[in-house]
Simulated assay, not measured.
Amino acid sequence: MGIVVKLSDSRDTNASLAPLFALVEEDMARVNQFILDKARSNVDLIPELARHLIDSGGKRLRPMLTIAASKLCGYEGDGHQWLATAVEFMHTATLLHDDVVDESSLRRGKTTARLLWGNEASVLVGDYLLGQAFKMMVEVGSLGALRILSDAAAVIAEGEVMQLITANNTDTTEDDYLAVIEAKTAALFAAAAEVGAVIADRPKSEAAALRSFGRNLGVAFQLVDDALDYSGEQSELGKSVGDDFRDGKITLPVVLSYRRGSAEDRRFWERTLKQGEIGDDDLQTAIDLIAKHNALADTMERARHYGAIARDALAIFPDGDVKSALLGAIEFSVNRPY
Rank of each mutant, 00 (worst) to 15 (best):
W82M: 13
V123A: 05
G131I: 01
S212E: 15
G77T: 04
S212M: 14
V180L: 09
L49E: 06
A208M: 08
N42K: 07
D9R: 04
N168Q: 13
G58N: 09
V140W: 01
P47I: 10
M1K: 09
A154H: 09
S324C: 11
G118I: 01
L326W: 10
N168C: 10
G238Q: 03
R202I: 09
L210I: 14
D98I: 03
W269K: 04
L20C: 10
T285G: 00
F221C: 07
L314I: 11
V334T: 00
K135S: 07
E270G: 04
D226V: 05
Q275C: 00
G261T: 09
E48T: 15
K323D: 14
L65H: 03
R51L: 13
A93E: 03
E88S: 09
D176Q: 03
T299W: 06
E331S: 13
E103H: 11
S104P: 05
A208E: 10
S105Y: 07
V140K: 01
D298H: 03
A329P: 02
G131S: 01
L210R: 12
E158H: 01
P47C: 11
A22F: 14
D175Y: 11
D151K: 09
D127F: 01
M64N: 03
S235D: 12
M137D: 00
A183L: 12
L7G: 06
V161C: 09
S104H: 03
L178H: 11
G307I: 02
M28P: 15
D280A: 12
D319F: 15
G79V: 00
A315N: 15
L273W: 05
T285H: 02
E174N: 10
A263Y: 10
F34Y: 14
R147S: 11
L115R: 08
A297C: 06
L210W: 12
G109A: 01
D175H: 12
G276I: 05
S150H: 02
F268I: 05
M137H: 00
L124S: 05
A186E: 03
V155L: 06
L283H: 00
A153E: 04
A29N: 11
S16P: 09
D55H: 14
G279L: 08
T170I: 15
S205V: 02
E48M: 14
R40G: 07
E160R: 01
N294P: 14
H97E: 05
P318K: 13
E160K: 04
S10F: 14
T111Y: 06
A227Y: 08
R302A: 13
G57L: 11
G238A: 00
D37F: 14
F268K: 05
V87C: 02
G131T: 03
V198K: 10
V198A: 13
V123T: 02
C73K: 00
R304T: 03
G320A: 15
A22Y: 14
G248S: 14
K274C: 13
Y230T: 03
N32Y: 15
E139Y: 07
R260I: 04
G214N: 08
T111P: 07
A286P: 03
A167S: 13
E26P: 08
L178T: 09
V140I: 08
R336K: 13
L326N: 10
E264R: 10
L49Q: 10
D12H: 08
